[in-house]
Write a protein that binds this DNA or RNA. Structure first.
Lengths: 143, 143
DNA sequence: AAATTAAATAGGAATGATTCCTGATTAGGA
DNA sequence: TCCTAATCAGGAATCATTCCTATTTAATTT
């Protein structure tokens, strides 16, 4: 997903396009991996002083609600965000060291026997699937 | 997993069995669903005053490191814990309302095309897969 | 282009989960 | 029973996130 698409999505839903919002989107587009709110804030702060964390949080929240941003939990208490891919939702191989993420074509819901769920009369709202480990570049220096 | 098994695991690893630890384990066994540290603490506090939150956190951490406890994120910033099952690891359907969890037999790693991962030279350490939604009992009162 | 206004912002305070610190207590082995 | 490392309680500290409020601004209307 590129910046233009994200901005269009915001406009469609009546959100204003502020410079801060654009900067945040730019960082997300450029990084294209799961990054923290802190990461976003510090990258922008280098050239754009006076950006409040609240603004980043607020915008990350907006983008998440518009389904252009997906959240992953590394288990350290910080949310990490990455723009979703264009076509369909994707799951990721996420590197515990550098934070890069590799897309998979695989979605478990395409493979699960639906009877597992319908038999239990369960109403699915959402699902998580992430694989964590070390990417090719980070293997070998895991210790 | 029952209380005895958990305690054996602790002993094997040289941990002492304190009354606080036993109470925490009892609650986890009795509830057998994903519950917060706060939940554990308040349940025990009713009959056992002066239990510090830190003690619950510390013990949850110990049990998690021993792989007898699994953590799930509902996305509200609180960790939720549940004893793992005996046989093999399981994934769950987790109710966003009551927190109950239903086991699935399905594990995505059994179905994924391994080439998706080996082609990328990725070293898997762990994975998450949870389905969130509403259980049979909670459907209908979702709003 | 100026006026208007709901939305968005900065900054700082507040919250809430989790961790850290310290001195006191205790489980379990000797 | 004694000893000691492990564990604990309580409270302070930390850290991510949210809330509050006065100010600014994007985008629409005149």
């Amino acid at each position: 997903m590129d910046a233009r698409e994200v901005i269009n999505r915001l406009k469609e839903h009546g959100y204003k396009i502020t410079p801060q919002r654009q900067e945040i989107i730019n960082v997300l587009v450029q990084e294209n991996r799961h990054i923290t709110v802190e990461d976003i804030h510090s990258k922008i702060s280098r050239r754009y002083a006076n950006l409040s964390m609240d603004t980043v949080y607020r915008n990350v929240g907006v983008l998440e609600r518009l389904n252009v941003l997906s959240r992953a939990d590394f288990g350290d208490g910080k949310g990490r965000y990455k723009l979703v891919d264009r076509e369909r939702h994707r799951h990721h191989l996420i590197c515990l060291k550098c934070g890069c993420s590799l897309e998979m074509d695989f979605c478990p819901l395409d493979h699960i026997d639906r009877r597992e769920i319908s038999d239990k009369n369960f109403h699915i709202i959402r699902h998580n699937f992430e694989i964590y480990g070390y990417c090719a570049a980070c293997r070998g220096r895991e210790g």
